[in-house]
């Protein structure tokens, strides 16, 4: 298992390097001039040229990439133009908020999705099974920002039972207050993934549920609930875990929209603000963080796969 994790870790290196090339390249092709963005449209050409030299923007792209890479290794993601603070500082305080939101969302989506999918697969073609199909179709055809707005209208503006935006009340408050603020964004974020995971679980369970070893367990008098939990689910998990991992990645990028709708102070909101203010170092940093998280999630998925597959686990 350790060998497997090590090997998988080594494979991440080229991927991560590719990510840095992509984020760097992104900074190069985003339209707009950083110097103009900083100094304003009325600044003189000389001032802008001086600033470009100062920021190293006039050097060739390759040498700038290696400078960029070198800085990354020392934890320097550059300076945010709009915040006037290091990007690493701006992002690190927001990363936790984003992880809280998307982490909760993926856990909710995974737990409910697997439970509902398994439950529906018990009786294929039954009312509950068809209900699942309709529910999945509905949730997957609703755009998340629209769902977010509808939730705000219903629960905050009409029923006035849940806060609409932000992470804490102005008066401040404890964990319960934060939890109340999380309800709507988590539902918004989780809805799509929950549907996808439930559908995948259903088909994965259906594929396993009549396997010989499941029949063996039944033939030995083991109750259906234990048969499902001990013999069906562990073997259905590999394909479900893959989907959960993919969804975790989507959730992370989905935070840009959801955090904007709910004014949640996370990486997504910062990224959205950075894009509209041409704060290129912050855009690069934000994308890098999300991309690295994506790669890490994929690695976790593979490790989880290995956990459910003794052939890899013991190799």
């Amino acid at each position: 298992m350790l060998t497997f994790i090590l090997r998988r870790g080594l494979q991440m290196i080229p991927v991560l390097l590719g990510v840095t090339v992509a984020t760097f390249g992104l900074g190069q092709i985003i339209p707009g001039d950083q110097a103009t963005a900083l100094l304003g449209p009325t600044s003189s050409e000389e001032d802008r040229a001086a600033l470009r030299a100062d920021l190293g923007l006039d050097e060739p792209a390759v040498s700038r990439y290696f400078t960029y890479l070198g800085n990354l290794f020392s934890g320097d993601l550059g300076r945010s133009l709009s915040f006037g603070r290091p990007v690493s500082e701006v992002l690190s305080e927001r990363l936790l908020n984003t992880l809280l939101l998307s982490g909760t969302a993926i856990v909710v989506a995974a737990v409910l999705g697997v439970a509902i999918g398994t439950w529906a697969a018990q009786k294929p073609g039954s009312v509950r099974d068809r209900g699942l199909t309709v529910g999945v179709l509905f949730l997957n055809s609703v755009p998340s920002f629209w769902l977010g707005l509808v939730l705000i209208v219903v629960f905050s503006l009409q029923l006035r039972i849940l806060p609409a935006t932000g992470m804490t009340s102005i008066a401040g408050g404890g964990a319960l207050d934060t939890a109340a603020h999380m309800v709507l964004p988590v539902i918004t974020l989780a809805a799509w993934s929950l549907a996808v995971i439930a559908r995948m679980t259903r088909s994965a369970v259906l594929e396993v549920i009549d396997n010989d070893y499941v029949q063996t367990a039944r033939s030995r008098g083991i109750g259906e609930f234990h048969v499902v939990v001990r013999h069906v689910l562990p073997n259905a998990m590999p394909s479900v875990v893959t989907v959960i991992g993919l969804q975790a990645g989507f959730l992370l990028s989905g935070t840009v929209l959801t955090e904007t709708v709910f004014s949640w102070p996370g990486v997504g909101l910062a990224l959205q603000q950075a894009i509209s203010s041409r704060d290129i170092p912050l855009v690069q940093g934000g994308i890098l963080v999300i991309a690295v998280a994506f790669v890490l999630i994929n690695m976790l998925v593979d490790v989880a796969q290995a956990y459910f597959n003794p052939k890899i686990k013991l190799a």
Binding site: N211, D212, Y213, Q215, T216, A217, R230, N235, F308, P310
Partner: peptide, 8 residues
């Protein structure tokens, strides 16, 4: 196929 591959 009659033994659960994921269980000892």
């Amino acid at each position: 196929s009659a033994l659960n591959p994921a269980m000892s």
